[in-house]
Write a protein that binds this DNA or RNA. Sequence first.
RNA 1: GCAUGGGUAGCCAAAAUGGCAAAGGCGCCGGUCUUAGAAACCGGAGAUUGCGGGUUCGAAUCCCGCCCUGUGUACCA
Length: 884
Amino acid sequence: MTLDIGLIHMDEKYFAKKIEQKWQRKWAESGAFHAELTDDKPKFYALEMLPYPSGNLHMGHVRNYSAGDALAWYKRLKGYNVLHPIGWDSFGQPAEDAAVKRGVNPRTWTEENIVTMRGQLERMGLSYDWRRQMYAHRPDYYKWDQWFFLKMYERGLAYKKKTQVNWCETDQATLSNEQASGGLCWRCGNPVTKKDLEQWFFKTTAYTAELLDDMAEIESGWPASVLKRQSDWIGRSEGAFVDFRSADTLVRVFTTRIDTIYGANAVVVAAEHPIIAANRDSLSADVIAKVDAIIAENLKPKERDEEVEKDGIDTGLKAVNPFSHEEIPIWVGNYVMMDYGTGAVMSVPAHDERDFEFAKKFDLPIRQVISEPHMEHAHHAMQAMALEDAFTEYGVLVHSDYWNGKTSDIAKKEMTEFAEKHGFGEGATTYRLRDWGISRQRFWGSPIPMIYCDECGVVPEKIENLPVELPETAPFTGTGESPLAKVPEFYETNCPNCGKAAKRETDTMDTFVDSSWYYYRYTDAQNSDAPFDTTITNKWTPVDQYIGGDDHAVMHLIYARFWTKAMRDMGLVNFDEPFRRLLTQGMVVGETFFDDASGKRVYYKSDEVNVERDQKGRISSANLRSEIQNPKLLRYAIERMSKSKGNGVDPDEMVEIYGADASRLFVMFAAPIENELVWNEAGIEGAVRFLQRVWRQVYKWKSAAAVGSSEESSAAKKLRQKTHQTIKRVSDSFEELQFNTPVAALMELSNAIGDVGEPESADTATKAAVAEALNALVLMLTPFSPHVAEDLYSVLVGNENGIVANNARFPEYNEDLAKADEIEVAVQVNGKLRGRVFASPDATNSELESLALAEEKVAEHTAGKDIVKVIVVPGRLVNVVVKG
RNA sequence: GCAUGGGUAGCCAAAAUGGCAAAGGCGCCGGUCUUAGAAACCGGAGAUUGCGGGUUCGAAUCCCGCCCUGUGUACCA
């Protein structure tokens, strides 16, 4: 099909838009990416983290989905049955913010955004099985959130308690511990406070040990840094509980260093510790005041790097050290936290940095009871040596009665046994991980299917009554009260148990609930009887490759792992870990310009700013363009790309200008996927040029690409070598999840084709070699730029079907063809390159050695000198070491 | 502070177990084409691999010290 417009043949020029629309239509019509279970191909589940429908795709999405799609294509070409789905994480706060600010219904807002974003994804030409889309906000999905909730409740994995929860003043909502990691709200970045609330929890701690131990199963496929962050988050700590008697009660402390117990100078408890409340009446006014001050301080938000000074007070209460029988004071200290361990510690200043600092400040006795092994005798002789810092290493016990002379290791073990035997302690493992608080005072989430009845108490909704549907709308105030609590039609109901009037729970679930199991729903997305059919799901899952940002390392990824383990115990899946392999892509960032004089950052777009740069291209100053007379100096930074920060590049616009193929190719080529990508659009034209070049090469050789072979010319041999070396390089790169290096390899191959010259002057062998090279090049280009690859492949095979419909496969690597029949070997003298020789790839070391020594320049440099030794690296180089 | 990445031409980046003269792209320079420019095409220049030491026949790669930088995290007892 050739369309003549004047003298130009339409199909000999690369028009991205035209071919992209053409192939997108073809794919959609043929259901090219519909995945069905079959037995004749191995399955591969490629998954990218699902998007929140904010309204617009950003560059982070483009990067994430381009990589995932490249992998899906590669696996498809390798003969796998690939499942590659997408869906919408469509519950969440921005929809509700839009309702508060602009009076839009969250549902309308969300649905419209999805339509927009789906269009953007389609224009990128991503190979999704769109039939499997899930929408978290639709009742056919969140019904199963509720179903899971009831299953969890049945199994004791969902429970309610009143507790101090993380509270974000800005967002007016609670946060789980994971979402408040680092003391900052995961969504808005503002410091988190505490609030007493009654909340529903999922019992993640039921799987603490497994979450830790099963990391062994995925160790080889996950980035070590993510596993490390998870294990730090779970925070296993081995030690012992020890009871200190205080009058008629016991104060239990947790310690990892029971061997230092003879050095305890006090028991320090958290301000919230029950012993304080129990003795409130008898404590002095000073103590009460201090306790209340610390409690109040703990509720306040803290800036990230804020160093909190140690504070505390002697309560006047006493406790007895069960080992030494010494009576020591009980202090309240602001550095002891109620929610870790037992909320009480034994203070051993000599061997703990925090206790040391505390003791210094309040002038408490510091007694060394662990000595460095060689200092042991000196310590026995002297009563106390002044320590400048806490000695926190293991050593040998001193000043510890019976235990003197024992090493820390042995003492820990024996002292724990001793405590157990005498009933004042026990070995213990504590964790930092807490249960997952999922109640949110929000409208736009999955309603928690529980009912409060005056007669029967807390009653679960009946499964057959699910879904508990959200009302059309509710009064949105943004004040942190559940909007559903103002909708009587929603909360007024009857008790499933006794039938009397009752009230529904009006909090909704954390949106991380939706993302904990969505990837199972994709495997059987239309199921209306169950979240999915276990037989089907067990065939597709676990996910073979998951790709997304590492900002979810301790949120989504821990929840999803927990969920999978819970599901396994419910008999729904037959494995422990949801994601075999994980790839974390780096952020896409760009320059931002802002004014923070008011204390809050006001961002400006780059085209509103005059920028001066230094020689390295870094910004040296920036000021606002509109105020030339009185330039307003702006501050600048490099931050994650987003529309609100004015540094967002609109992917849709990029696709419109350069085409999806070039945009995707460029994003993959620009930097290693796991690196941060500082956005710089300058290079994208190179991607366009490369595609145009390949396009031209295909058309140039189209008619010349004759079959049949004659004697292989050296040009033909060289090109075939390059082709097969490239096949190897590109497939190895995909296996290692590298997406930038194979693009460079393809460019090299294209350059090599260019080096062959013109078809008119080529011999038959060369034509065949070029045909092979182009065929391989186009197929290997498919994962990055599928539309142009489909089109060019059609030209190469001479039918309109392209890659998918012709059922094309990734080119086969032939090792013999990749090997040169003559190799060039570098010859060095004393490590300096002096010449080179040509030899057969099978030449022996001694053959290479004599060739090398005979080489003219080498002979010159070795003449009259002693040859000390000759090092031969087969196939690479010969180094002659001479002396004199 | 602790942990963990990284520093290769003006910019982004590649180089299995140490082994050739350090890929590819952007930008730059020159040429072809054009009335001219742009685009496109062809060609070219540009790197003692952050600094200082060490090991080795041989170091971007290994070791030691220093400098700079990204990310995570912090009274976790």
